[in-house]
Nucleic acid binder design. Structure first.
Lengths: 152, 152
DNA sequence: ATAATTCGTAATAACTCAAGTTACATGAAA
DNA sequence: TTTCATGTAACTTGAGTTATTACGAATTAT
């Protein structure tokens, strides 16, 4: 089952955009997301509609951050992508006439609903600012491990 | 993203097999799972290897239950299917060099791991016997609602 | 033995859906 | 008015699943 990596890609893009300082073109972003500009525009469109980023045309145009990283969570970003299906597994028929299948679906749905609730709850606890902070921690450690050979 | 419905299908099949009493052919099962016999054999092969069902060739052959419904859970059945990926969403690169992407992946993985653990835990609490009992409850209610007009 | 039934499985075809691509229109800046 | 950049529709590609075909192997009944 092929996985949808748009959430991962978009977060990656947002963090790069923040440290970049000035607008990044779809082409820039496509390079860093290893995809192509049209896909970037399609994907980012949802974020723009939700007000998390803005896009400007023409020379010096491109994508820029339009939100407070402290106030936006992974859950918000996921919602802006259109709440893509989180689970790869599901019921064959959503409203089966067969009572056996109804019993099976009910049991599976209970479990999936609980897991989905937990996942979204977790997403809601992670702000973009927290992600950015984690990146800076990794960056600092990376520098201290690789920057001065004396410490190796 | 299309969903994998093998778990749902297989549970459906197991419950039918139990009430059927005698072996069911791949063709019988294909009808009730709305697929075709070869797919049934492929799907059930995992359950046979795990010892939950048996298959016999030749006339009067077919598939039959080979386990105690009280001792087998949804988690066991899911494992017998080869632990198919549960999530439709994932990271673009599993081991990225980019530190930004590493930070993003770490956050997402935390959330997914927690949700997966919960889901499997839930699966482990539901036995096939419980599913069968739930079906019988539904069947009884169905009869009382439709069988005697006096109660309507 | 022989015919009929049923599973086992490899090979292949058909289908589905997301991602990628092309093409062109729109708008902004210099 | 030229250049840069996004917006978007239409189309192509490609990966992954499921369905189908075809044939082999095992089992039962006669």
């Amino acid at each position: 089952m092929k996985r949808d990596s748009r959430l991962s890609s978009v977060l990656h893009a947002l963090l790069h955009m923040e440290s970049h300082g000035k607008p990044m073109t779809s082409e820039d972003l496509a390079t860093c997301m290893s995809t192509n500009p049209v896909v970037v525009r399609r994907t980012m469109a949802g974020l723009r509609e939700s007000g998390f980023v803005r896009s400007d045309r023409g020379p010096n145009g491109g994508w820029s951050i339009a939100c407070d990283f402290d106030r936006v969570t992974l859950r918000d970003i996921n919602a802006a992508l259109g709440e893509p299906a989180l689970f790869a597994v599901g019921n064959r028929h959503e409203n089966p006439a067969c009572l056996v299948e109804q019993a099976v679906n009910a049991a599976l749905d209970d479990a999936f609903d609980a897991a989905e609730a937990l996942l979204l709850e977790r997403f809601a606890t992670v702000t973009l600012a927290a992600l950015a902070a984690d990146f800076r921690r990794r960056f600092a450690r990376h520098k201290s491990e690789n920057g001065t050979k004396a410490h190796a």
